[in-house]
Design a protein around this nucleic acid. Structure first.
Length: 201
DNA sequence: AACATGATAAACT
DNA sequence: GTTTATCATGTTC
């Protein structure tokens, strides 16, 4: 197992990186407890030119400032007042691209994740969905801006090689407000994986 | 006022 | 079993 180094997040285009991250491992060691899962669903947000992005049109605020930093850190923000959504910041400094992780397949520390989620049975809803997986992994806004090559939150190459026909591209979820950009096929997921958040088709 | 969601309940088939 | 409705919740702009 090897951590994915920062230059990967800065050199691949956000759409390519979103596909690359499928099958990789998202790991956290928080309060000394290791939890991890295989990434099965991602969405690309293409910074300035993407109406669905918080940085559309180059919007720069206290919240979005994290997006403009160099790729390889976390962007975690509060959604609907309840959910902490985890994104991987990509591209070089100054380009506010990011990838929302929408689903993982739990691997390590499943008991801890169920405890964090208040669940007694292992079901897909444990980590299917961006708010759900953040909670399971113990991620919150306290980790906004954290480097993904550190000892608390990181990504690993699992050695899993997906074939192209296992990867589905589709419109993104919950971004109807972005008008025509909502149709961009920037959502990627692993075919028939039960930890994908919504419509499998 | 809007928002990159999740859990639940009630009404279907 | 499945679809549809509703609400909780708080930060951002």
């Amino acid at each position: 197992m090897s951590k994915i180094p920062s230059h990967v997040f800065q050199s691949l285009h956000v759409a390519e990186l979103s596909k690359f991250l499928l099958g990789k491992l998202l790991c956290t060691q928080i309060d000394g407890v290791l939890t991890s899962g295989k990434i099965v669903e991602t969405e690309a947000y293409e910074g300035r030119i993407d109406k669905a992005s918080h940085a559309y049109g180059g919007r720069f605020t206290n919240r979005t400032s994290t997006l403009y930093e160099a790729g390889g850190i976390a962007y975690i923000y509060l959604c609907y007042g309840i959910h902490n959504l985890f994104n991987v910041v990509s591209a070089p400094e100054g380009t506010p691209h990011a990838i929302l992780i929408r689903g993982i397949e739990p691997l390590t520390g499943i008991d801890v994740m169920m405890k964090r989620r208040g669940m007694s049975q292992l079901k897909p809803s444990l980590t299917a969905g961006p708010g759900a997986l953040s909670k399971a992994l113990g991620l919150s806004r306290a980790h906004n801006g954290i480097h993904l090559t550190g000892d608390e939150v990181w990504l690993e190459d699992s050695g899993i090689q997906l074939s192209p026909d296992e990867i589905v591209a589709a419109p993104r979820i919950g971004v109807d407000y972005a008008a025509e950009h909502a149709q961009w096929p920037y959502r990627y997921y692993i075919l028939r994986n039960p930890f994908v958040s919504k419509p499998h088709l």
